[in-house]
Simulated assay, not measured.
Amino acid sequence: MTDNRDMTAGIACGAGAGALWGLVFLAPELVRGFGPLHLAAGRYLAYGLFAMILLAPRWHGLRDRLGRREWVALGWLSLLGNCLYYILLASAVQLGGIAMTSLVIGLLPVAVTILGSRDGGAPPLSQLAPSLLLGIAGVVCVGWQALGPAPGGSLVEQAAGLACAVGALVSWMIFAIGNTRWLARLDHVSAHDWSLLLGVVTGGQALLIVPAAVLLEATGQDISQWSHLIAVCAGVALLSSIAGNALWNRASRLLPLTLIGQMILFETLFALLYGFAWEARLPTMLETLAILLVIASVTSCFTAHKPAAAPA
């Protein structure tokens, strides 16, 4: 079982990753004139470029420690956790809104924690049940309000947005579990380098998105709007992809899967807070209750994982 110091550091890293990842829910609202393919291509091309620059000084030594299995894993993890996930996420935000999307993604901790409870040494589900129920209650509080018809959006758009959000949920759930498993067996590669390698591979995959973005998402933007898109994509790449992923991988090495799953709630929490700031409003009573329930859920999960005190 993880000791208290590692748990505290892991939770701090998980919370930091959630704060930075929450920005990805706001990005589609900042560049409404561009579709999800343009957003994904821009963000991940920037991520790949920054990752290559950071890896360049130690590339030769790192390359020799990677075999075919590692590269295959980097390929499917990059696809599920980055490119496919973000295209679906951005589509969900633009079709259904920030609140609905953050609601669906908020179900991730439940799924990951339940699957992680099967690992050796994990707390039994009976101990994790209070945390899971609190998390679900928080999601329901947001969903009660968020799943109504969106202002200016049709029911068809809402349904399409919900479908994209569910697709993003499944994609990232597979990534979260697979990435944690790989980090546990990669004692010859640091968590930060693994994150940067994911960035390099994701950047290569983003090159394949560019033709689709040009063909499928017609744009008539001027130079200033393109400059704005580049700035947003570069900012998200640095903050959410480089810094956020590094913090997440560090947390994944310090925390068991049953606890790392709960860290995803911080992304939901910060996505809601950024949404309130963007809409220039205070949270409703239900949304305030949801925030408190999310905090209680993480606290309860932390308590379930605390090592038992040694007998005197």
Rank of each mutant, 00 (worst) to 15 (best):
G35Y: 03
R181N: 02
L84F: 14
P36M: 01
A309R: 14
I209T: 00
V189C: 05
W21G: 00
D64E: 13
S195Y: 10
L239D: 11
A206Q: 07
C164F: 14
L282K: 02
G75S: 13
D6Y: 08
P283N: 13
R181V: 12
L272R: 06
L162P: 00
V72D: 06
H192F: 11
L198C: 11
I295F: 13
G244R: 06
W278E: 07
G178M: 05
W59I: 08
A90H: 13
R118S: 04
G116I: 09
S252D: 10
L30E: 03
S224Y: 13
V112Y: 08
A129Q: 15
A280N: 09
V142C: 05
A46M: 13
L128H: 05
A308G: 14
E217S: 00
L89T: 14
A310R: 14
G199H: 09
Y47F: 15
G152D: 03
L293E: 02
V31P: 04
R65P: 03
Q127S: 09
G116N: 05
A251P: 06
L169R: 05
S131A: 12
G42H: 04
L289Y: 01
G244V: 09
W21Y: 14
A12L: 15
A168S: 08
Y44G: 11
A27G: 01
I98V: 15
A111T: 05
P130A: 11
A146F: 07
Y86Q: 11
L207D: 06
G178E: 05
A165T: 13
S240T: 08
A212R: 06
L155A: 13
L183M: 09
L269N: 02
E217C: 01
A92T: 08
Y86M: 10
L128V: 03
T299S: 12
G135H: 02
A159K: 14
H38F: 09
L133G: 12
Q127M: 10
T258Y: 10
A234W: 12
A310N: 05
V72S: 06
T8G: 10
M1S: 04
